[in-house]
Structures are given as structure tokens and as C-alpha cells.
Computed example of a mutant assay.
Amino acid sequence: MAVDLNEFKHPSWITAAGAITGYLLILIVLTVALFIVPWLVFLAL
């Protein structure tokens, strides 16, 4: 069964990949802001 990779070049796949990437970046930033930064401040005290 041959897979046609041209179907993944559709703009909807690019949009989906961009949305997932954006959500992951936001998740990383919020994790750092809400957990890592307070932990570092607590250690500095």
C-alpha cells in the first residue's frame, strides 16, 4: 500500500501543526512562569 505524501501538504495540516506548536509553547511558558520561577525564588530566600 503506497502512501501519497502530497495529501499532507494541504494547508489544513500546516494549520494543525502550527496550532499544536503554539499550544506547546504556551504550555512551556506557563509551566516555567508558574512552577520554575517560584521554585527559584523560594530557593533564593
Rank of each mutant, 00 (worst) to 15 (best):
M1N: 10
A2E: 13
A2V: 09
A2S: 11
V3C: 03
D4N: 13
D4Y: 13
L5S: 10
L5H: 13
L5I: 11
L5M: 13
L5V: 15
N6W: 09
N6E: 13
N6C: 05
N6I: 06
E7P: 01
F8T: 05
K9Y: 12
K9T: 09
H10L: 08
H10N: 13
H10V: 04
H10M: 05
H10E: 10
P11Y: 09
P11C: 05
P11D: 12
P11Q: 09
S12P: 00
S12M: 07
S12A: 14
S12H: 06
S12C: 02
W13Q: 05
W13P: 00
W13T: 07
W13E: 04
I14S: 15
I14A: 14
I14V: 09
I14Q: 15
I14D: 12
T15V: 09
T15F: 05
T15A: 09
A16S: 14
A16Y: 11
A16E: 08
A17H: 01
A17D: 02
A17R: 06
A17F: 02
G18E: 15
G18W: 07
G18Y: 04
G18M: 14
G18P: 02
A19Y: 12
I20P: 00
I20L: 15
I20D: 02
I20T: 08
I20V: 15
T21A: 13
T21C: 15
T21S: 12
T21P: 03
T21M: 10
G22D: 06
G22P: 01
Y23N: 09
L24F: 10
L24W: 10
L24G: 13
L24T: 12
L25V: 11
L25H: 02
L25E: 03
I26R: 05
I26H: 01
I26E: 01
L27C: 09
L27N: 04
L27T: 05
L27K: 08
I28W: 11
I28K: 15
I28C: 14
I28H: 09
I28D: 05
V29P: 00
V29M: 04
V29S: 02
L30K: 04
L30Y: 12
T31F: 13
T31Y: 13
T31A: 13
T31H: 10
T31K: 11
V32H: 07
V32F: 14
V32R: 09
V32M: 08
V32W: 08
A33V: 08
L34R: 06
L34V: 13
L34G: 12
L34N: 08
F35D: 03
F35H: 04
F35W: 10
I36R: 04
I36Y: 11
I36Q: 05
I36M: 06
V37N: 03
V37F: 08
V37P: 03
P38A: 03
P38C: 03
P38S: 02
W39C: 04
L40R: 07
L40T: 09
L40I: 12
L40D: 07
L40M: 09
L40W: 02
V41L: 08
V41M: 08
V41C: 01
V41A: 06
V41H: 03
F42K: 15
L43A: 07
L43P: 00
A44N: 12
A44I: 07
A44L: 12
A44R: 15
A44T: 08
A44Y: 10
L45H: 07
L45W: 06
L45C: 05
L45F: 10
L45K: 11
L45T: 05
